[in-house]
Amino acid sequence: MEYEVKLDIFEGPLDLLLYLIKKNEIDIYDIPIALITEQYLQHIEMMKYLNLDVAGDYLLLASTLIHIKSKMLLPVEEGDAGETEDEPDPRAELVKQLLDYQVFKEAASQLDQRPLLERDIFKRGLSTENGNAGISEDETPMEVSVFALVETFYRVISSMKEPELMEIDVEKLSLTDRINEVMAQLTEKKMLSFVELLQDSSDKRMMLYTFLAILELMKLRMIKVYQASSFGVIRVVLAAEL
């Protein structure tokens, strides 16, 4: 079972479209719709098994692109000379939307470049204790997306070297048991990394249960799963601890 996830992270369909425009060095005011539509569709094909919720927004833009493409294929009526001039470019609205989005993307990056409190500048009285394994009381780490969890899960599972033996009479596992075990571990250790929790399991089945247990506990808001930075260590803590 080989899972390879290779995907640039896009903030949405417009972001993906901008990326394609930049990649192909296209003039934003004169987008070759056929080429871009094709590449765009290729990309969402790749993204299909990811977040369905996001896919909806992507599909909406895909249909817009196809609509524009078909409009542009239609021959322009050359009846009344003046009228053809007035016909707006079917791409115009999309271009406006892209330009607008681009401005706010720039605004976001400018914001991020500002000296941020507790990243670049500091006020008095911050705790220097690094205890609690990296999460200081004041830290507000970003919450992990389920996608990051899935990725880590596949990484751990594919790093399992030993071949799996087929056993028929293994002990019966139940999700409830695993949930209780995870909770017990967390109560004792206060904080565990996601990888630590997974490595605790002996085989893939067990890992799968651990993973499901974590998802279930997240849903029940019994635990919180945090990541201080992109690609950082994913940490699991009891919700009550925070």
Partner: peptide
């Protein structure tokens, strides 16, 4: 002490930018 790398995702930063303006 541990400085925050980034406390906001890109999506959050973009959303914040739109709201700010």
């Amino acid at each position: 002490m541990k400085a925050k790398q980034s406390m906001l995702t890109n999506a959050a930063m973009e959303t914040l930018a739109v709201i700010a303006y």
